[in-house]
């Protein structure tokens, strides 16, 4: 474990806490893409298949349970909670995310470390996570004005993988046989998707203005 990876995990955790706060405090999920949240459930379930078979550390197991539990809770809330599901902007959340699942799975069948069930599902989860934010970013552009909590949620979500890139660079130089080319390349693509959001987020922060994404 290094400081970059720990900062990345904490930033990821903060993004989830901010989203849960928004949904429970405002009893609203307006501006949040249910499709992106559903993709994250698939990402965590596909990546943590070894949750019960291999033990790495208490931290690792606890964080996996938190990520799986929170992503399921958010999807449940947006689909089943009476007050919250009424605020879901279904007509703005129109990205055909099934293609992202299909494309990621096909890519995992072609590009993986080893052709085993766990490695293919792990690569699938890595590719899917890279594109999982797309429905949310498209929805933000459609909905124009972004409320603070939603903006902070997307910001922390983008920042966490940027910390992971620093973690991979650090491990590359400190560990002899370290190679995570799948996670690294995918992480670069994932963080690149946030580039324009980060730009407009920085502008809104600098001008102390509302976050506005160009339609």
């Amino acid at each position: 474990m290094n400081i970059f990876r720990f900062a990345g995990d904490m930033t990821h955790l903060i993004s989830i806490v901010v989203l849960l706060l928004k949904i429970y405090a405002t009893k609203s999920c307006s501006g949040i893409s249910l499709k992106t949240q559903e993709l994250y459930v698939i990402v965590f379930l596909a990546r943590y298949l070894d949750l019960f078979t291999d033990f790495i550390s208490v931290y690792n197991t606890v964080m996996k349970l938190v990520f799986i539990g929170s992503s399921l809770a958010i999807v449940w809330c947006m689909r089943m909670h009476r007050a919250v599901k009424r605020t879901y902007d279904k007509e703005l959340d129109t990205f055909r995310h099934y293609f992202l699942v299909l494309g990621s799975f096909v890519l995992a069948l072609l590009l993986h470390e080893k052709f085993t069930f766990q490695e293919i599902f792990w690569a699938f989860s890595i590719y899917l996570e890279a594109v999982a934010i797309l429905p949310q970013l498209v929805m933000l552009q459609r909905s124009g004005n972004v409320d603070n909590l939603t903006g902070q949620y997307v910001f922390f979500l983008g920042a966490y993988r940027a910390f992971y890139i620093l973690n991979w660079i650090y491990r590359f130089f400190t560990e002899p046989h370290f190679s995570r080319w799948i996670a690294c390349l995918s992480g670069l693509v994932q963080t690149a998707f946030y580039a324009d959001f980060f730009y407009y987020y920085f502008i809104s922060w600098k001008n102390n203005a509302k976050l506005q994404l160009p339609a």
Binding site: H12, I56, N167, R180
Partner: peptide, 10 residues
């Protein structure tokens, strides 16, 4: 065990 060894990241 080999799978998880190099999958120590979340």
């Amino acid at each position: 065990q080999s799978f998880s060894l190099n999958k120590d990241e979340l």
